[in-house]
Design a protein around this nucleic acid. Sequence first.
DNA 1: ACGCTCGCATCAGGTGGGAAACGG
DNA 2: CCGTTTCCCACCTGATGCGAGCGT
Length: 602
Amino acid sequence: MLGGEGESSTFSTMKEAADDRRKSPAVDVEDPAAGSRYTEHGMGTDRSYYVPPTVSKQTQEIPSPCSFIPYSPSGTVYSPSSAGRYPSSLHLGSVLPPTGFPPSTAGRSHFSPAYQLGQSPGCIYPPYTSSGSALSNITLPSAGPGMRAQVYLCNRPLWLKFHRHQTEMIITKQGRRMFPFLSFNMAGLNLTAHYNVFVEVVLADPNHWRFQGGKWVTCGKADNSSQGNKVYIHPESPNTGAHWMRQEISFSKLKLTNNKGTSHNTSQMVVLQSLHKYQPRLHIVEVTEDGVEDISGDVKSQSFTFPENQFIAVTAYQNTDITQLKIDHNPFAKGFRDNYDSMYTAPENDRLTPSPTDSPRAHQIVPGARYAMQPLFQDQFVNNLPQNRFYNSERAVPQTNSLLSPQTEDAASQRWFVTSMQGGNGTSTSNKLDLTPYEGEYSSSLLPYGIKSLSMQTSHALSYYPDSPFTTMSAGWGSRAAYQRKVSPSLPWSTRPSPTTGFPEDLNKVKAQIEEDVNGSGSLISSWTETQPSALSLDKADSYSTTCKRRRLSLNGPSTEDSPSDIKCEDMTSAATNSSSYIKEAPSSKGMAAYYSFYTNP
DNA sequence: ACGCTCGCATCAGGTGGGAAACGG
DNA sequence: CCGTTTCCCACCTGATGCGAGCGT
């Protein structure tokens, strides 16, 4: 409602920012230099923030009352090279957590350490350290105590799964929802201040892509002239910081279209061009109570970019791995799962209760691991051991495989870290996907995200995918969907024990926990910059060249990683549970609620 | 009698696949 | 001719409405 209205007018500043961006859209992802481009921005400075793709800086934590702060990197965590280019205004890198924790340490205690590390990120996440260290540079928002926002990508594990294979999003004339959809948890906002929260989808790189030979390759230049709405304002905008932090903020209703002329539901539709790569960006803009952006004084806006959210817009899926992931995780595609099973696991079509150990696909689908994990982090980790690997693999493998040869991914999957980050622009290799830069980060981040997601739970936001208990997961995740699979209707998840662990009693504890999450996992992302809202589409694309062949890749190897993501989610939940004491809503079992409740309670 | 909860049926909407249509 | 886009299909989820059953 509000958001929609406000789009054009309210965010004028944003538009300006966007304009600025346009000027420099074209940097190549590949360009090593690109990394440098990503600059941080200071708070009000400008939109040009970006994070060096390769370089992520870890921020050192500044002692601040708010534990969250530490991670709020203004700096950059990582910015995808591509992202940097078009960044409208702010770019925050997401902080990635180090690779998974050792199973043994998985437990909460484990996080604590992470937390500490968080303060010195470098230590904690060695991989990221180099680049990640950038975070330290991050300047905290000067805006005021309330302005230090931190954002968690709730369904990051799921996004990572897709990202590994180069996420594709279908765009249709009438609009197609994203899956995974964007779902965030926020922290660090002023409880009483009002904010508009919106997502802007910007061109991630200057290339036109095509799927050829089983992988995505560039094919000419992107069409910068694209027109149409590029911003989706969360329907609950404007709203108070307490509101935004109380629950998971889902953008499940956001639709992607290629219909530039669409006049209806423009508030729900983001116009994109097929075969172009995009980077969703979350913007949080402080506004007056009536939703008007406060132009007086310093503009308080922050933007957050998660490289794993990048996707290529398509009118038909190109990579069968992506198709399978969609089918496996999207409840609405459940009808296609049987086929899927048959395709991938021939003999076992009938398996009613897929076990995690089953075929890779089964992992994705099966939540078994998750469930088990819920109770405790440790459990989660333990169970996840394999999963962790997957995650790693996701990271490491990602680009290469997914793009190149998915089939081989599994094997490769074992490696989590990618060196790319350090290098300056990890972009190095790839122009193609630019995954590398992120990967390192991803790996580290996995846990964190998972954690958060747990906390998030409240699902009110999610109308479609929220299941009750699992809502949190839903946001993203596939986890839920997976569980629901026909195959394993009987899965215990419904019975999931709610987290029993208590939350930290006091805020400090909560903070600490959060920090842990952040640090440890790095899940929080955060790069935030205060800048003016920028937002609008920048990209214009032009016609892209042309020929693209579509090839469907193999099915073979559906990713093996599915479970990991789930796991993470679960982990998070468990974590959340720990802090239950704060939970206001005690929704069933959702630790998430608890987590947020913290915020809600002044 | 009234109010609440539960279960079932229905409807709207979302999903990917496949074929046809479109365009260079 | 080839690649991309569009349309239709069957299937599924989620929300809603309605009625029955139960408790006060």
